[in-house]
């Protein structure tokens, strides 16, 4: 993904259903440093809705998204703002 963000790495959650995809996303985000971001790739449809909901509820922040083939890549950080 072409992005000005400093992305640490990518987690592929395609093919996983709720709640496994959301739990794995949150685990990966929790392991980030304050200034780091991660790319999370998730199936479109209900999986995207579940994962986004969990990320929002956990207080993490989605900065950007990019549709891929049958999936979406979202850029997430631990903090509400990024420097």
């Amino acid at each position: 993904m072409k992005s000005p963000f400093n992305i640490k790495n990518s987690v592929d959650l395609r093919g996983l259903s709720c709640p496994v995809n959301a739990v794995r996303a949150k685990d990966a985000i929790a392991a980030l440093g304050d200034e780091e971001l991660i790319e999370v790739v998730v199936d479109e449809g209900q999986a995207l809705i579940n994962v986004v909901r969990s990320i929002n509820d956990a207080g993490y922040r989605i900065f950007k998204s990019e549709p891929r083939e049958n999936s979406i890549a979202i850029i997430v950080g631990r903090r509400k703002t990024v420097s």
Binding site: L48, I49, I62, S65, E66, P67, I72, I74
Partner: peptide, 12 residues
């Protein structure tokens, strides 16, 4: 809006 475009993807 921060132009993350997520809504374009999650709108059912």
């Amino acid at each position: 809006c921060t132009d993350c475009s997520l809504c374009v993807s999650f709108c059912p």
